[in-house]
Structures are given as C-alpha cells and as structure tokens.
C-alpha cells in the first residue's frame, strides 16, 4: 500500500468514522439500524452549501486552505440544523413507533422510506448535479517518504481527532454521557433512576445529526456535494459501526479508519470502480469472524 493511499484512506476513514459514531449511538440507545442516517450527512452538506451561497461573503481562501472563513461557521450552523432535522425525524416518525412498542424492523423499514424521501427532497430542491464548496486548487504538503496531504486533509484529520475526543469525554465524564450509557443499558431502570429518557433520546439524535453534518461538510470539501453522497456512505458507516462494536465511540472511529483504508487498498489494487465493495467485504468478514465487533460485548 503506497503512503498516499494511507493518507487517502485515513481521511476517508475519519469521515466514515464521524458518521459511524452517530450510527453506533442511535443504534445502541434506540436499538435499530437507521437507514436514514446517511441523509443527515447529505443534508448537513447542503445546509452548509446553502448558507455559503446565500451569504456569499468570506469566500476568499483562508491561509493555505481552499475555503474562506465563512465555511467553518456555516459548518457549525449546518451541524445544528442537521441535529435539529434528526430530532424532527424522530418526533414525526420513530417516537410513535417507540411509543407503541413496534418491532425494531418496522422502524428500520420506516427509516428506509424516510431516507428515500429525504434524499429525493434534496434532489428536488438542488437537482442531482454535483456542486462544490470551492474550486480552489491546493498545493499538497510533502512529509517525505512520498507522503503528501493537502492542508484541507490535514485540517480534517485534526478536526476528527478533536471531535472524537470531545464525544468520548462527553460520554465518559459528563452527566448526560452517563445518562446515555444508562439508557443504552436499560431504559426502564434509567427512568426510575431519575433520567429524563426523552431528553437523552433527543441528545443522541442531535449528536448523530451534527456529527453526520460534519462528515458531510468534509466530504463536500474533499470530493463533491451530491444528493446521493450520504446514501453512498451508508454501507461504510454500518460496516464501521459493526466492526467497532455497537455502542463504542472509539470502535466506530477505528472501524471507520479500517473501512477507509480497505477502500483505499481496493482502489489501488483492484480499481476505483470497486471502492464501494470494500465496505461489504469488511462487513462480511466481521459478521463471520467477530459479529460483536472489536469493542463490543457478545449480545444478540
């Protein structure tokens, strides 16, 4: 594997990992695989894009980066909006199923329908034509040994590290993190212990949506923005979340990086057109060898 493929894999893997954190959190607390999660990624990217193009200021490239000062701000707003979208989707759809105790799989089907509708809505508004945050070309920084990375890529890796550490601390050191873990283990007991489960559920959706938006803005910056960008990431997200072990944040990010590296390896050895199959290969391997994932406890 060439050094360059490793950099590409790491960057793609950190995007996948950020998305997978949301998948793993909603999965462990709400207990279903949300097929609409990819749409938070796409909606996050389009939220940021809409803000940037409507405001039209602060577009001059900032230092070595390809984007201006507006984009980071727009990304934060987009994260909040995507978090809100996730809460709204739960309020409109999933909360009703939970309230009546619907089968997990009914929620999975509903999330599949919601994903179709959300994506088609993006296509309706923005058309399926790919768009870009910026057209600036970047000069890669050389690290020696053939290792090169653009300033954007380096910033993204750094942002991912910061976000992951922040989420990890939130889960392990704060009251809401404790409550999230408690609800994940036993929602009824959590209520008896004084935990406002509704608040925890909203927090989880918000975090998932916001992190997905962060991944979406990164994907938009590195590749392009398309309505299908989130849906196409869905399989890698699931593969990463399952590989890492459902409920494990470090696992999700590590799983993301493994999937990203496998994709880069596939691109190098087999060809770019097979990139999407790499995630399926990883998923199959995990399910055969260690279905509970790297950091997961055996549980059905």
């Amino acid at each position: 594997m060439s050094p360059q493929a490793i950099v590409d894999g790491l960057v793609a893997g950190s995007m996948i990992g950020l998305g997978a954190i949301g998948v793993t959190l909603t999965y462990s607390i709400l207990r279903f695989a949300n097929f609409a999660h990819g749409e938070f990624i796409a909606w996050g990217a389009y939220f940021a894009l809409a803000l940037v193009s409507v405001l039209g200021i602060g577009m001059e490239p900032l230092g070595p980066f390809s984007f201006g000062w507006l984009l980071p701000l727009a990304a934060i707003v987009a994260a909040v909006l995507a978090g809100g979208l996730a809460i709204l989707l739960d309020r409109l759809l999933f909360s009703s199923f939970r309230a009546r105790g619907s089968a997990t799989i009914i929620m999975v089907i509903a999330s599949f329908g919601a994903s179709m509708a959300l994506r088609a809505l993006l296509e309706f508004v923005f058309t399926s034509k790919p768009v870009y945050f910026t057209r600036e070309l970047q000069i890669a920084v050389r690290f020696g040994g053939g290792l090169r990375a653009t300033p954007d890529q380096i910033l993204m890796l750094a942002t991912t590290v910061v976000l992951v550490v922040a989420i990890h601390l939130l889960l392990t050191r704060t009251a809401i993190g404790r409550q999230m873990r408690a609800v994940s283990e036993n929602p009824v007991l959590a209520r008896v212990a004084g935990v406002d489960v509704g608040k925890v559920v909203r927090t989880v959706w918000f975090l998932g949506g916001a992190l997905a938006a962060a991944a979406g803005v990164m994907a938009g910056l590195l590749v392009q923005i398309r309505p299908y960008m989130g849906f196409d990431l869905l399989l890698p997200l699931f593969a990463a979340a399952i590989l890492g072990g459902i409920g494990s944040v470090p696992g999700a990010i590590l799983g993301g990086i493994v999937v990203g590296l496998c994709e880069a390896l596939a691109v190098q050895t087999i060809g770019a057109e097979w990139r999407a199959a790499a995630a399926f290969a990883v998923l199959t391997a995990v399910l055969v060898l260690r279905p509970q994932g790297l950091f997961g406890k055996a549980r059905r």
């Binding site: 695989a33 097929f35 997990t104 999975v108 699931f238 399926f280 199959t284 279905p291």
Partner: peptide, 14 residues
C-alpha cells in the same frame, strides 16, 4: 444468528 437488522444491513450491502 445475529440481530434482525444485521440481515438488513448485509442484504443492503449485497
């Protein structure tokens, strides 16, 4: 032998 939605994810990948 796994959770019901793992089959969903796997068939999706397929």
């Amino acid at each position: 032998r796994l959770r019901s939605d793992y089959l969903a994810i796997t068939t999706f990948g397929f």
